[in-house]
Amino acid sequence: MRPFQYERADTLEGAVKAAGTGGATQFIAGGTTLSDLMKLDVMRPERLVDVNPAAGGPAGRIEATKSGLRLGAMVRMAEAAEHPAVKTDYPVIAQALQLAASQQIRNMASLGGNLLQRTRCEYFRQVSWPCNKREPGSGCAAMDGVNRLHAVLGTSDACIASYPGDFAQALVALDAVVETVREKGGARRIALSDLHRPPGDTPQVETVLEPGELITAITVPAGPWTRRSLYLKIRDRDSYAFALASAAVALDLDGEVVREARIALGGIATVPWRAREAEAALRGKTMDEAAATAAAEAALAGAQPRGDNAFKVPLAKQTIVRALMDAKRMET
């Protein structure tokens, strides 16, 4: 690990001031990704601004109202996962958090930081390999290498690394918005579906956040579908593993007919993936096996597998079907 400067900020606004807009400064909250990547020499910040003291302020609060949910960026994953209103009214969020990582990590990791979790692509995490995300222009070793865990949606010629998180999928499905603060230009609101950028030619740019911009809160609008929602995560072992495929689904049903469906996919895409084609395919249909299968086909129509990850295409389809059928059966 390379030496770095360390300072603490009492508020998120103060942190933004302290950080400035220099690229070599990183915010640190739970540190569950950053400290790993620093030890691996993948991330080499010269300066860390610790935002943990801000957890005592508004950034550490959860507010559930009729109009929706507001989650402070410094709320820990475990706390949000166990919050009664989140569990009852937004089960997809509680489950996505609960099924991520281990209890120890969930106790440490902040919600804001979790959204910015970086890929688990092994070629990215080991500095001896070429990687366009870590070292733009150096090439992509995963493209024709070991790529079982890589993405089949949203890929580019430069990068096929998958987005590893779970929480963001639940948020994308529910049209969540992040609130941020910047040193210049002030606060702004970004739809979660716009937060992450597909790799394109610039896989090193993972989000639309500007240097020194910090997420302060996440808001989730209430909707008739949030109670009938769930997160299904398929993985190699029963706990503490990244998704091979996952689906965040929310349904608003009129009897058995779909008024609205919300579907987001994880484990298979370069960014938290909203499956709007699948949602459109379900609207107005009777929620049955055939409709679910048609939706799953629509969701994966553009999939581009590369070798080891070909199984993710049928797996993701089955994950969507199973999640939809399970959501239909939910008691709300």
Binding site: R120, E122, V146, R148, D236, R237, D238, S239, Y240, A241
Partner: peptide
């Protein structure tokens, strides 16, 4: 069901050299 050290066949190099991607069962399994 789990253990496999993945090798990049072009380079003859191991890829999943850590216990987050070299899986063994956890209690839940």
């Amino acid at each position: 069901l789990h253990e496999k050290t993945e090798i990049d066949r072009r380079a003859a190099r191991y890829v999943n050299k850590n216990i987050s991607e070299y899986l063994v069962p956890v209690n839940a399994d």
